[in-house]
């Protein structure tokens, strides 16, 4: 592109911009993510322990914990509290299952204005969709490998 007078090619310009731009603080973000992510997991553990205490088996207690966390994530999203939490905690609140819940509820709120079917229905999985497609897809492949492996072993 020789018609601009800036005297830099694309590569030089990209490097120049990167040298001047503020970067996210990785260390700080990691520490905050560790603490908040850990706290969310502690909440999950508490729910599991309570369920175990009521005499449920380990698997059911784990399921109850997941469902409860998904509910809490959805509720906080609807109350507009998950966004500020996420802004502070970053990966700490995206990675746990509450983040998954947030990624489904937030587009649902957003697309309400386009109606129940083409709005909420069509867009609810806009953010979580890729996770579901590749999460479920890869577990199917792994399942097949496991199945075939078992036949021959």
């Amino acid at each position: 592109m020789d018609y601009t007078k800036i005297g830099m090619n694309k590569k030089e310009y990209t490097e120049y911009v990167e040298s001047k731009a503020d970067k996210s603080s990785i260390l700080k973000n990691c520490i905050i993510a560790f603490i908040i992510g850990g706290l969310i997991c502690i909440v999950g553990q508490i729910i599991t322990d309570i369920a175990l205490n009521y005499g449920l088996d380990k698997k059911t207690a784990g399921t109850i914990s997941s469902i409860s966390l998904i509910f809490i994530g959805a509720l906080l999203t609807a109350l507009k509290l998950y966004q500020p939490l996420g802004k502070f905690a970053g990966a700490g609140s995206i990675v746990p299952i509450t983040g998954f819940s947030n990624s489904i509820v937030s587009p649902a709120i957003e697309y309400k204005s386009e109606g129940l079917i083409l709005g909420i229905g069509a867009n609810m999985f806009k953010v979580a969709g890729p996770v579901l497609v590749y999460g479920i897809g890869s577990s199917v492949i792994l399942g097949l490998i496991y199945y075939i492996f078992n036949i021959f072993m």
């Binding site: 731009a21 503020d22 609807a78 966004q83 996420g86 905690a89 509820v105 709120i109 953010v127």
Partner: peptide
């Protein structure tokens, strides 16, 4: 935001730039 980026209530961080 909804046209170009992510849903408003999605909990993500602001990139410094």
């Amino acid at each position: 935001e909804r046209q170009f980026r992510m849903p408003l209530e999605q909990g993500t961080q602001l990139t410094p730039t």
